[in-house]
């Protein structure tokens, strides 16, 4: 596998867990993985971003314009990191049901660059699953179910089960599946 991923959000949203799931998927598939996490002060509700590079890379940082996938757990943080996506890349963003507010110019540029921006109300789905904290897993399910996803959905689901703490295993499986279903509904729209 060869993939570059950005996961952006706020402290407490599970940015690091989402990126660690994808890192473990790569490891299980026998690929090299390197990435960068945010720790320390910014974790107190501030901006948190994880970089992940799978394949023959040596540096932990993704350069702007080269990410295959941008996962945004928060709409503002996703917007801030949109330019990390490569032309033709995929951005999956947790957006409250109100919808996207990045402005016309940004939307037009995304179109020109062929960057697909997919929105899902992961917070709402997570609440329906029984835990607001699993929006990150909903978004993972949503992103990996997309046909353009570089990560095989079964491998991500299996890894998620393997590394989830036992008491969150069922909740995480539900959240992942609900995220995937939301993506399939997108497809039929």
């Amino acid at each position: 596998m060869n993939a570059r991923v950005i996961v952006a959000g706020l402290g407490g949203q599970g940015v690091l867990f989402a990126s660690r799931v994808l890192a473990q998927v790569a490891l299980a598939m026998g690929d090299d993985v390197i990435g960068s996490e945010t720790h320390g002060m910014s974790q107190r509700g501030g901006q948190v971003v994880a970089h992940l590079k799978i394949g023959p890379y040596r540096s932990p940082l993704v350069r702007k314009g080269t990410a295959d996938l941008v996962l945004g757990l928060d709409a503002t943080e996703a917007t801030r990191h949109l330019a990390f996506a490569r032309p033709g890349g995929l951005c999956c963003v947790n957006v409250p049901s109100g919808g996207w507010m990045a402005g016309e110019e940004v939307s037009a540029l995304l179109d020109t660059l062929g960057i697909s921006l997919l929105q899902v109300d992961a917070d709402r789905i997570a609440l329906e699953c029984g835990g607001p904290a699993v929006a990150n897993v909903v978004l993972l399910g949503f992103a990996t179910a997309h046909p353009a996803s570089l990560f095989p959905a079964e491998a991500v689901a299996a890894t998620l089960q393997r590394i989830s703490p036992p008491r969150f295993r069922d909740l995480n499986r539900r959240a992942f599946e609900r995220g995937a279903e939301a993506a399939q509904r997108h497809e039929t729209l």
């Binding site: 702007k64 314009g65 917007t79 801030r80 949109l82 330019a83 990390f84 996506a85 490569r86 032309p87 990045a102 402005g103 110019e105 940004v106 540029l109 995304l110 660059l113 960057i115």
Partner: peptide, 9 residues
Amino acid sequence: PTEALDAAV
């Protein structure tokens, strides 16, 4: 490649 997008953001 995403310089213009970066500027717009």
